[in-house]
Amino acid sequence: MKPTLAVWKFSSCDGCQLTLLDCEDELLELAETVTIAHFLEATRSRQPGPYDISLVEGSVTTAGEVERIRQIRRDSRLLVTIGACATAGGVQALRNARDHAAFKAAVYPSPQFIDALDTSTPIADHVPVDFELRGCPIDKRQLLETITALLKGRKPVLPDYSQCVECKLAGTVCVMVAHATPCMGPVTQGGCGNLCPRVGRGCYGCFGPKENANTEMLAAEFAALGADRRTIRDLFGNVTAGAPAFAAERARHDG
């Protein structure tokens, strides 16, 4: 029997699931290696659990989603969260620090019809997670490495160093040293392929905080480069704003 793979969506943009469909050279081969048992974005056929591997995209933002992730956990041998929403709450976690009722009223004329929790939270806040893949979106090579490794029963090999290391390895000129451009690279986990510094842009934190990120020192450095409070707040308050290290630093520059 082939192992079963399921893909699940919570509050998100679908971009991380799409990354699986974007494996154009590997997709048909993958479909011969595993049974795709549940993947609504791609197929209307659905098989009941249990599943060997569940890939979970998106954050938890409604009471219904809290229930659904618990059921998926019960049905899954391995649960892998994919992307910034599932691992850190996503850009929508920016509401966690704000008044949710005011947000609802700002977007919807009749906010009473809208059923949503006050916070957007990562999957690991609700159920145990076996493995997480960072990124907004995730990186295709990391996704394939993870699926391959888990099918073989080994641990996926993924970088845990910062973006800075990635730039050094690639020989990319440091945008902060050379151009005084604020860059989240020193505190952000590598993995994207140092995309932003490569085009002369500061990293904006898609892969979330690396372990033991010294955010306070970096914020001081941003201030020394002339960044104002709001700019520093919003550098930490971007697509991985809900990650604890970034949320705490953001709060220090808010208001």
């Binding site: 409604t62 996503g90 850009v91 700002a106 904006y204 709001r230």
Partner: peptide, 21 residues
Amino acid sequence: EPPRYFEALLEGRSFRDAPDI
């Protein structure tokens, strides 16, 4: 699909942030 309030979370940010967000 649960709401994500993009319009509200842009308020008070720089115009530069809107395309990426």
